[in-house]
Each structure stands twice: as structure tokens, then as C-alpha cells.
Simulated assay, not measured.
Amino acid sequence: MMKTLNATLVAATMACACLPAHAGMLAVEAGLMDWGSQAEDHFGKGKSENSFIKIKGATGNAFGDLYAHVQLEDVEDSEMIGSEINIVGQINIGQSDFNWYGQVFNKQKPVWSETNTLLGLSWDKTYDNGLYAQLAVAGHIVTADYKHFDGDFEGGFNGGYVIYTLSKGFSLGEQAFSMVWWQEHYFGRDDLYLSLSGDGEDFGLNGSAILRWHATDSLSASLTYKYANNNLGKEGFHDGLFYGLQYTF
């Protein structure tokens, strides 16, 4: 059975449409992350109105699929500049809709860094109406440097992970759009990690709802609603709106 490429698995934006097997994608996107008051009151300039530029690519074949992106944030501010690297892969299990799943997500700022490795199983399927659905369950291994916060977290196994993704393309008049919604969940996390990372509570989640207007085959614009609860460095809820312009080669 031919598998579809899960190009919607993006640790920060996840804004690409699913591509057919044996396909590839390379794109560059730039925009603004406009975080809400809950985030800005807690993080200050760290989550306020922050620029980003991202290079992302994906490929897939009968063996499996691979997605990766590299993102720079706050490039105009040397004291705040950060980076993000995300690699997501699936290896097909026979002719079924199940896969071996792996993800490596690294986030760095001038005063801290964290790498999350997620290994497990996934299921994905594209339906006749074009709807793509994906579910993955994995173990979570973390390595981090929080020495700026006077913490000596050694890392290691950090509980479990679940993510689900839905995406679909559609038309309004003669205009092409796509919609992606994904949400990931963490549980069973280390108490010291929760204290140093700022997440606070054991169960945490974050996700995005992304509307993309495909103005041409190469040029598209996106509006993303990003949200998190007991995750992304803050106990409780915070959210924001992200605006992006993407060119696909």
C-alpha cells in the first residue's frame, strides 16, 4: 500500500499539506509570532512579538517518510536569538497503516537548551475525501541544560508522549486553502524537569490550528493559532497568533 507523507508534523508550525509517496517538498517561511498577554506577562520579550524564519523540507516513498525544519527566532536581537530543529520520521510496517515513529526536537536560547527524543509507534491514513489523520504514541527522552536556572537536571527518560494530527485541503470559490490541526501531550514527566522547565504540572499539552491560503503553487500565507497548557515553559495556559508567508520551491 502506498503511504502518504506526513508533512504536517512540525514541532512549532506543522503547516505543510500531506504529499503523496515518492514526493518531496522544500520551502522557506518567514513571519511573526504574536503571543498573547498570558505569555508576555510571564516571559517578557521572550514571548511577545517575535520574528522567525524557517527552512523546511519533506520526502516520502514506499519505505517511509521524513520531515525536517530549521528555524531561527529573534534574528534581529543578539540577546534573544534562538534556534529550533525538528526531525520527524516514520518507517512503514509492511503494507499496514502502522509505522515505527521517531522525532528529535531541539530548542535553544542564549541561557538554556533542550533536546527531546521521541520513539514509538504511529498510525496514519489518507481517506478518499482527502482528510489525513495521524496518531503517534512514544516514549520521551530529554537532555537539557538549565544551568542558568541553578538546576542540574541530568536528563533521561521523561514519561510518555501522544500526538494526533488532522489535515485537509479545500477550495473557496477559485481559491485553494488547507487546514491543519495537531495537538501533542506529555505525561509522567520528572518532577525536577517540571520545576526547571517551568511547565509545573505533570500533564501538559500544546497544539496549533493552521489555516493556509495557497495563492499560487509556490506562494502561500498562513494564520496559526498556537496554544499550550502546562507546557512550553509555563504552568497554566498561554496562546498566540502566528503570521507567515511561505515560498515553496
Rank of each mutant, 00 (worst) to 15 (best):
L194W: 01
V88I: 06
Q38C: 07
Y225A: 07
F237W: 02
T126V: 12
E235Q: 15
F177W: 07
A12C: 04
S218F: 00
G160V: 04
I93T: 11
D152H: 10
D145R: 03
T165E: 11
Q71L: 14
A11Q: 10
T13L: 07
R212G: 09
V111T: 13
T126E: 04
K234V: 11
P20S: 12
T4F: 04
M179A: 10
F170T: 03
G169H: 02
G155Q: 11
I85K: 06
K107Q: 08
D145Y: 02
F170M: 00
A23D: 14
G240C: 09
G236Y: 01
N231G: 02
G44W: 00
H238S: 08
E154W: 02
L192H: 02
I85D: 12
E49A: 06
G200H: 02
K168L: 01
A62W: 02
Q103I: 04
G156P: 02
F177N: 04
S83C: 04
V10K: 08
F98A: 13
P20T: 09
G198H: 01
E174V: 09
A12P: 06
F237C: 00
V111I: 11
A209E: 05
A144I: 10
G60P: 03
E49V: 04
K47T: 00
A68Y: 15
A221Y: 12
K107I: 08
N158P: 03
D124R: 06
S218N: 15
V28H: 05
L196C: 08
N206W: 05
I93M: 14
G198V: 09
A30T: 12
G64I: 12
S96P: 14
F153L: 05
Y146I: 06
I163H: 06
D190Y: 01
K147L: 00
L194T: 02
K47C: 01
K45V: 12
M80Y: 09
E201P: 02
T115E: 14
L172I: 12
